Amino acid sequence: MAGIGSYLKKHTEALVKDVGIEPACQLTGKSKATLGRYYSDSEEHSDRFMPVDTVARLEAAASYPHVTSALAELHGDTLNKNNSNKGSGGGINSDVISLSQRFAMLMGEYQISIEDGVITNNEAKRLLRETVELQKVLIDMKLHHEDGND
């Protein structure tokens, strides 16, 4: 359970940061401290998780459903967003270029992080953000292919 808890907390943090801490407080009616406890990795908050209704409010304002996606991944599933970038055009070639660019950004972030032989907590968070961005491109690519926009 510790690994699952840590995974969910990282995605909870990504969700709050996606929305922004101040807007997240306004949307949820919760303080910065309360929101911080939901993704804190300190022992005293290890059993605290964001309530589902709070996740729903934040994900409605976020650019990506971070926590819902993490829950799906934990069960071996993926999300299929019906409203994702329809009409963005470009087809499969454009998707492959976007995928290549995002992967290059992830590898660049990794190169910077590993230079001193240690990946710090902040560097790991940046890598996670880039990984989530890469995942978004893959989901869009999948949706374009399913829609027949090749």
Rank of each mutant, 00 (worst) to 15 (best):
M1V: 12
A2H: 15
K9M: 00
K10N: 15
H11Q: 00
E13L: 08
A14C: 05
K17M: 09
E22I: 13
A24I: 00
A24V: 04
C25Y: 01
Q26I: 07
L27P: 04
T28N: 01
G29L: 02
S31R: 03
L35F: 03
S40Y: 00
S40I: 02
S42P: 15
E43I: 10
H45Q: 09
D47I: 11
F49W: 06
T54R: 02
R57K: 11
E59V: 00
E59H: 05
A61D: 03
Y64A: 06
H66T: 06
H66R: 04
V67T: 02
V67P: 03
A70S: 02
L71D: 05
L74G: 04
T78F: 09
L79G: 05
N82Q: 08
S84Q: 13
S84M: 07
K86P: 15
G89T: 03
N93C: 10
S94W: 14
V96M: 13
I97T: 10
S98A: 14
Q101E: 14
F103I: 09
A104G: 15
A104T: 05
L106T: 01
Q111E: 11
Q111S: 14
G117F: 00
V118G: 00
I119L: 04
E123Y: 03
R126Q: 10
R129S: 11
E130V: 04
E130Y: 11
T131A: 08
T131L: 11
V132F: 05
L134W: 06
L134P: 01
V137S: 05
L138V: 12
I139D: 07
I139H: 03
M141W: 07
K142H: 11
L143D: 12
L143W: 15
E146R: 13
E146I: 10
G148L: 06
